[in-house]
Design a protein around this nucleic acid. Sequence first.
RNA 1: GCGCCCAUCGUCUAGUGGUUAGGACACCGCCCUCUCACGGCGGGAACAGGGGUUCGAGUCCCCUUGGGCGUACCA
Length: 498
Amino acid sequence: MRWCQPMVHTRPISSNSSAVMSQVVTRFAPSPTGYLHIGSARTALFNWAYARKTGGKMLLRVEDTDRERSTEPAIQAIYDGLSWLGLEWDGDPVLQFGRASRHAEIAEELLASGHAYRCYCSQEELAQMRETARAEGRAPRYNGYWRDRDPSEAPEGVKPVIRIKAPQQGEIVVNDSVQGKVVFQSEHLDDFIILRSDGTPTYMLAVVVDDHDMGVTHIIRGDDHLTNAARQIVIYRAMGWQVPGMAHIPLIHGADGAKLSKRHGALGVKAYREMGYLPEAMRNYLARLGWSHEDDELFSSEQMIEWFDLDGLNKGAARFDFVKLENINGHYIRQSQPDYLYEVMVSTAEEVGRAEDHAGLLANKETVLSALPELQPRAKTVLELIDLAQFIYVERPLTVDAAAQKHLGDDSRSLLADAVDVLKGLNEWSVESIDGSMRTLAEQKGLKLGKIAQPLRAALTGRTVSPGIFEVMVLIGREESLARLSDQTQDAALNTGT
RNA sequence: GCGCCCAUCGUCUAGUGGUUAGGACACCGCCCUCUCACGGCGGGAACAGGGGUUCGAGUCCCCUUGGGCGUACCA
């Protein structure tokens, strides 16, 4: 329409052109007060997927207005965690505390327009109010003491806070993409503080101002913020700003259904990396916790983006299940290219301080690489992959674990000696030739192959579990194989000889 | 206490008034097999309870129970 055109042209092109306005803008807004929580990571994942799906942007805002608890390492943990998970944000991160003056400015504006007022109550008075309200069976809320009081009554030397004038009747409706229409009665909301007595903004004010200024169109966050949404709408209305779309996703619970505990998954993202989980597995698992697309279980992130929709988000809380995470991780380990896995093994070994493994992996790159296809189906985590690869670089003489010792009795040792003789005479050192010769030996002795294979495994790896033992022999080579075997037969000689 | 949200196998979930209630993980059995995995085949396992609405409820409404979140000059 004609009267719309001047608006378009006079607005600054930077933020309000019609093209930009129709673009989805989501944001991930963690507070840097510890490690990056796994539940937060999932929230980031959904924000990321929705932005990518719609061709929009995901912004990152660090909510560091709590000066007591916010720390620099925690901010770094957010960046590192997101990067590891492959959840790239758009533009520079916004540090909320840096916008404090803007927040104060809005508080003043609200004050000037009569939508807010100064309150001079002391902590003691407020505590008293809450107690009274509770005693009367009402919600513990501020009673509006200074709402209509003349500032001239202000007590001496008290630095006031600024409170929003919340509506006292009517209802506030949150139209949520996940929870549906949620109605709050205004009488249950009090005049909450938007600016502290030291002039810094509270969370409630800062989020609204920042989401508005950053052009956020969709707020996807944990449903612990659902009631806050009502409070925030009060500020949006007072400022005459448009309320963004909202999607409050359920929280993640621990395996026992209660709060997430350390044992139940309440760990930082970094901990998952150190436990040997792959980022692609984390993304897939986290996505299935509270979101679904028909019966699909295993899918790439590209596929997830294609399928992602707010409709697919669940309303009920999900429990964190390490067993399923492991299964999915195992799937991705099997799917991965050996060279990629090798790099992850090396960096993980270094990160968790497994110096010997780190050195062993580096010194035997080619062997590890060719062993990987044998190792992959046997590991659920990168840590297990490293354990499985140890037979390649362990130093002789091997330490034999208790279970493996049982396969190295006197009978077995003499059998091993026979095997060594046969092996020494082999022209070709390949899985086929070794396999054939050992089967023949077993047949001659009237034994099942397993009776020879297990002692071989015990002697060659020091364990009862390993990849196919003939594959192991080819992997470590003829010389090393015979040496490890001889170590055991010579022990036998010592033990039985004298 | 008050307010709000949630509720399908042990767990993650599909399901949007008419299904033998499906899949995945886990579990059990069988097969493969030099161990362990991987893989294949098969099995047990759920609509929290009670009222409605309807010819017909897992699907809609109410209550109960059970969980969660909020109720800060934290975010």
